[in-house]
Nucleic acid binder design. Structure first.
Lengths: 192, 192
DNA sequence: CTCGATTGTCTAGCGGTGCTAGGATGGAAG
DNA sequence: CTTCCATCCTAGCACCGCTAGACAATCGAG
């Protein structure tokens, strides 16, 4: 039976290789450059092997998105943990979020711009996504203010950050003033 | 010489037909369905005709985006004109913006998600885009608050709206609470 | 009115995409 | 040692954006 187990281990390892390579390629050259042919060549297997792990390209994007969500949750929680008081915590969260988006643009796209076939805000939403939202909620729920539902506040604050992240990266907003925009959001939206 | 003029008129008309058809097709079936072949078939010309008007598909997207920006400016100004007092004006603007995004998803994508080859926030930015931003600035600049640059405030408020628009449409946010999120944004961000 | 030049349009095709059917191959089981 | 089965690859499908080159229609000169 250990032969079978070994094969399963190797298979799981190859799956991780596919996801890591797709992410790498996307960060290097953008998702448009992540074609099944190039991806197959990089992992040194033929195209059909990809389809024995994933239904198609969108599922590969989804896998990168889930991985990214888990990392983002870690990054946000780490940033918040190093800050004192509600205001600093919210500001640290906002900076960590935008920083993550800037440093991992392809992952951010996989999460929020592209179609990775993932459900959001539903029962069958992957755990990584639920947890990433929970990481935001932990800090933002504190500053929702009286009579405002913490979840609703978190959604709204998150949407604002998402807007800044995407518009800045798509060169719709000049990047120099990012810090000032963050301060504005934090000071006005959060109730301390 | 009037023969030449007639031909130019017909050519301009055909260009408008291309843009209108691309927009129609995108609203019906999404931008993925807007292929040069399908578009050519709908306008009852062959593919290469498209390339005698536009450098490529991205320029067609850009043309739809410019058209959409002009319409959005009109919609926003109309909504604001029908409201009294700063708070109502800002709320009306926010609703009009999100309403436009919801009613014209393909146009909204052309403007802010896809690459239409347009410059933003620069000298060579198309007039329609500058004017759409101006329409936001006219109302939002009023409520930036002391010591906050009106342009910066407008960018930030706009980013928040954009975040709500995209996340809602991509099913990342449940749509039922949109109105409550708007109220939250307006009441907190704007200084009255 | 005829004829060459120019303009406009089309057919056909290039290299690429995501995805899949079917045959070859190599290792486990009997 | 042979049989069988899982695994993988070659080859190919239909489609994509885009373009070269053939063809037809129109224009201006003689």
């Amino acid at each position: 039976m250990s032969v079978k187990e070994r094969k399963e281990r190797e298979r799981a390892q190859r799956e991780r290789l596919i996801v890591a390579t797709a992410r790498e390629l996307a960060e290097e050259q953008g998702w448009d450059a992540v074609t099944t042919r190039r991806l197959a060549e990089r992992i040194e297997y033929s195209q059909p092997v990809l389809y024995s792990h994933f239904r198609g390209k969108r599922e590969i994007i989804g896998a990168v998105a889930r991985e990214g969500a888990a990392e983002m949750a870690v990054a946000v929680r780490a940033a918040v943990a190093g800050a004192d008081g509600p205001r600093d915590r919210v500001a640290a969260l906002a900076r960590a979020y935008l920083d993550f988006a800037e440093r991992n643009p392809a992952v951010y796209d996989a999460l929020f711009d592209l179609d990775g076939g993932l459900a959001f805000a539903q029962e069958d939403t992957p755990g990584e996504l639920k947890d990433a939202f929970a990481a935001l909620l932990e800090t933002l729920g504190e500053v929702a203010g009286d009579g405002v539902h913490p979840g609703l506040f978190t959604e709204t604050f998150w949407a604002s950050l998402h807007g800044l992240a995407t518009l800045t990266r798509a060169r719709r907003l000049p990047p120099e003033d990012t810090e000032r925009r963050i301060e504005l959001l934090v000071d006005r939206l959060a109730v301390m």
